[in-house]
């Protein structure tokens, strides 16, 4: 039996459990959602097939474009921030620092706090009259008036970014840390002998070898940011004036108000967006080589 030849039967045995759970609990409902996106499905109206009607309605819907813009901007700002910061954290944690194990566990804390709670915590931090953020800015002298953090589209955006980056950077750090473990110490020693400096070693060795882990991080962070819901639901509920409505929040509203067809169409758009992003990351990081 050739070790790397075509090996269908064995492979399917290994992969079957995953396929079964995914088909039963994800593929079928997803199929249902896609089907609903072609219907006018409102709880109190007779269901009707409308083809691409929901999607053409999306194109004409200003709120949809506003949400799309917000979601794109939010993803564009959050994901790079999280990855850069998470990479720094992972690099630090990979070094021999004092109390390394304890520190590694503590940086997981933000990720470990349930989103529904951390969103509430940030709500309290941004509170206008007794929040920590205003207390600190006033105590440090950055501002003599309390700031209404969630009050303008720009500051609400920043507030959401900070909360999201805080929450998810540990996730990035943990995956990248595991990735760093796959880089043998010896390579660095060689490079050192060859006279490569700190930056050079990072750019020439660490980064290229970290690409698969980076791809995973980029993909999963982008997916999660594109469909962000809980944090925004709690902190701004889309305000002020609808400026922070993410696509998922928009879709959520329609699901909640009983228009399942239109809600499903939005879900399909979220999916397409996340999928296109994922593919492009795989391309950019050369992760596709795994499949060669």
């Amino acid at each position: 039996m050739p070790a790397r030849g075509y090996n269908g039967r064995t492979a399917y045995i290994f992969i079957a459990p995953m396929l079964i759970v995914v088909c039963a609990f994800v593929l079928l409902p997803v199929g249902g959602t896609v089907w609903l996106s072609f219907l006018r499905e409102v709880t109190y109206l007779p269901a009707k097939f409308v083809g691409l009607g929901n999607f053409s309605r999306l194109i004409r819907d200003e709120n949809f474009w506003q949400s799309l813009k917000f979601t794109a901007a939010f993803t564009g700002v959050c994901v790079p921030l999280e990855v850069v910061l998470g990479l720094c954290f992972a690099l630090i944690l990979n070094e021999r620092i004092p109390m390394r194990n304890l520190i590694r566990a503590t940086i997981l804390v933000p990720w470990a706090v349930p989103t529904i709670v951390s969103a509430r915590t940030w709500e309290l931090i941004y509170n206008y009259s007794y929040g920590l953020a205003n207390y600190v800015t006033q105590a440090v002298g950055l501002s003599d008036q309390p700031i209404n953090w969630l009050g303008s589209p720009a500051s609400a955006f920043v507030a959401l970014v900070v909360a999201d980056v805080w929450k998810t950077t540990p996730f990035v750090a943990i995956i990248l840390l595991a990735g760093l473990q796959t880089i043998p110490e010896g390579i660095y020693e060689h490079a050192k002998v060859d006279g490569a400096g700190l930056t050079q070693r990072f750019l020439k060795i660490t980064l290229p070898l970290l690409k698969p882990a980076l791809a995973v991080v980029l993909i999963f962070r982008s997916i999660d940011t594109v469909r962000i819901l809980d944090l925004i639901y709690v902190l701004t509920n889309g305000g002020p004036g609808g400026s922070t409505t993410s696509l998922s929040l928009l879709g959520y509203k329609y699901f909640n108000e009983g228009d399942f067809g239109y809600g499903s169409a939005i879900a399909v758009v979220v999916f397409l967006l996340a999928f296109v992003l994922s593919i492009s990351y795989l391309r950019a990081t050369g992760f596709g080589k795994v499949f060669k």
Binding site: G151, S152, P153, G238, G239, P240, G241, G242, S243, T245
Partner: peptide
């Protein structure tokens, strides 16, 4: 959304 936008001075 509209009333909130008016209150915030955006509209």
């Amino acid at each position: 959304q509209k009333v909130n936008a008016a209150l915030s001075g955006m509209m």
